[in-house]
Every structure is written in structure tokens, then in C-alpha cells.
């Protein structure tokens, strides 16, 4: 009996396990603490994540890795994205097996992606050309950024683009959950604001975009086809960025505060949307594919 295009029991268990780990080690208090110390990377947490296999997911077991495939890795990155886990998770994952210590979390790895480098100062080493990188005042308090002026636009690594899409999917899912929670709890005019169609429809669209993106991201993880990956990133970027904005809108005035979690999701989604050449690159790739 074929499993078909849905999660296996093992995949569900993996997702639940990662979610539990992140809730335990990076819960609401840790998130607040991280926002209060921009640029600081919790090295102890990093080693714990390494020990849990987060960076060595796709490394063969013979090389000390977990030996999983892209679909499982996508599920894990969806969770790190959902939890707003700070740090160069993607760069460390991509470096596992080539940069000593990256897999275990002993060595923190940053990565030049186009003209941006995340977490450069906190990293022990950097992959790609980050020479002359200048710090900028990052819009996202949980992602310190450097700008590399004059960096060439290399063809993006499809795996990096896919795993970024997975993180965006996590954000989209979380934004939908937060919006729905608030719409059910917050009362105005004597009823939950989620009873009003204007609010209800914002929430419905959040889910529709997230679930459409989910199908694209999971399928791209199965096929690893570059066009599927480009499609996944476009859908996931939109689901995350528009999702976080709609979530903010549902939260009303509270959504505009520093205190509410919502802005962190939007800002992180903006950062990720710049990776891999941005949406332009993916749209052009898919257009070219249409006439190939």
C-alpha cells in the first residue's frame, strides 16, 4: 500500500518531536529574552540543537548524521520557522559534513546569500564571499544582517531556497493560528471579532494561502525539481508575508505593538523573502520554463 502524498506516521512523529523540543528550549520567555539581546546567539542552545541532529539531518548515518531526506528536513525547517528560532540554522545545516563542527553545533556557520549575510558576527566561519561586508541596522531584531556591496548574483542553491520556503510555511501556519486565536478571544460589539465576516474572511484567506503553499513545498521536497522549488518559494513567501500582515491586521492596535509576537513573524518573513535572489529570480525561472 502506497503512502501517497501525505505525511507518514514517522513524519508526523518527527514533526511533533521537533515542535516539543523547540517549545521546551525556545518558548515564549526565551523568545522575549532573545528579542531583548539582538545579535546574541545562545551557544548552549545551538549545541543542544546540534546534539538533537538538527543540522545533520541529511548527513548519512555513516558520517554521524541522521540520514533523513529532503521531505523530513522540510518538516523540521517548517517547525524552526514556526518557532522563530534565531540563528543561522539554514547555513549550519548546509555546512554540515563540509565544515568541521557545523553538524554538532560546535561551530556556528554563516553564509553569504546574494548581497546579504545573516549572523556574520556571531559565526565562527562564513561560507561564500563576505569580504567587505558592512553591518546594517536590521529591521528584524532576531536576525543581525551584513550587506556585501557589489556581490554578484550567483544562481541560488535550490536546497537553500526550498528550506527557506519551508520556514516561510511555518510562519504562514503560525500566523494563521495566532490570527484565529485572537479572533476567537477578542470581543467587540458584544461578540468575538471572529464572528464578523470581515475578520473571518481574513482568517480564511490566511489558511487558503498557507495550505496551497504547503502542497507546493511538500511536493518540491519530494521531487527536488528546480521549477517545483521555485513555485514553492513564491507561494510560501506570499503565504508568510501576507499571512503575517493579515495576522497583524486581525490583532488591531495590539498587532502594532512591540510586545505582541506578530511583528516578529512579519519581519522574519521579510528577511527570508530576500534570500535566493528574491521572488524575481523564481518568477523569471518559471517563466523561462514555460517556453523551454
Amino acid at each position: 500500500m502506497t503512502v501517497r502524498f501525505r505525511l507518514t506516521e514517522e513524519q508526523r512523529a518527527l514533526r511533533a518531536g521537533v515542535r516539543q523540543l523547540l517549545e521546551r528550549r525556545f518558548g515564549a520567555d526565551a523568545l522575549r529574552a532573545a528579542v531583548a539581546r539582538p545579535g546574541h546567539l545562545d551557544r548552549e542552545l545551538w549545541r543542544e540543537l546540534g546534539a538533537a541532529g538538527l543540522f545533520a539531518l541529511r548527513l548519512p548515518e555513516a558520517e554521524g548524521g541522521v540520514g533523513l531526506g529532503l521531505p523530513e528536513t522540510v518538516l523540521v525547517f517548517e517547525e524552526t520557522g514556526r518557532a522563530l528560532l534565531p540563528g543561522p540554522v539554514l547555513a549550519s545545516h548546509l555546512a554540515a559534513g563540509t565544515v568541521p563542527g557545523a553538524a554538532t553545533g560546535e561551530c556556528v556557520v554563516a553564509r553569504a546569500d546574494g548581497s546579504l549575510v545573516e549572523w556574520l558576527d556571531a559565526a565562527d566561519t562564513v561560507c561564500g564571499d563576505a569580504s567587505g561586508a558592512l553591518p546594517l541596522r536590521s529591521v528584524d531584531p532576531l536576525t543581525p544582517l551584513h550587506r556585501v556591496l557589489g556581490a554578484g548574483a550567483d544562481a541560488p542553491d535550490p536546497v537553500a531556497v526550498l528550506l527557506t520556503a519551508a520556514e516561510q510555511l511555518g510562519t504562514a501556519t503560525r500566523a494563521c493560528e495566532l490570527a484565529v486565536q485572537h479572533a476567537r478571544a477578542r470581543e467587540q460589539f458584544g461578540q468575538p471579532i471572529g464572528a464578523f465576516q470581515a475578520v473571518k474572511h481574513l482568517c480564511a484567506d490566511l489558511l487558503v494561502r498557507a495550505e496551497t503553499a504547503r502542497a507546493a513545498v511538500y511536493a518540491a521536497a519530494v521531487t527536488a525539481d528546480p521549477a517545483d522549488i521555485a513555485a514553492a518559494r513564491l507561494l510560501a513567501d506570499e503565504a508568510a508575508v501576507r499571512g503575517a500582515r493579515d495576522c497583524l491586521q486581525v490583532h488591531g492596535g495590539m498587532g502594532f505593538t512591540w510586545e505582541a509576537e506578530v511583528h516578529l513573524h512579519l519581519k522574519r518573513a521579510w528577511v527570508r523573502a530576500q534570500r535566493g535572489g528574491g521572488s524575481t529570480q523564481s518568477e523569471e525561472a518559471l517563466a523561462a520554463d514555460l517556453v523551454a
Partner: peptide
């Protein structure tokens, strides 16, 4: 057109 292709793939 590229974005539409993404949507119909999805």
C-alpha cells in the same frame, strides 16, 4: 506568467 505557473503547479 511565472507567478501563475507557480500557482497552477501548487
Amino acid at each position: 506568467l511565472g507567478r501563475l505557473s507557480a500557482e497552477f503547479r501548487a
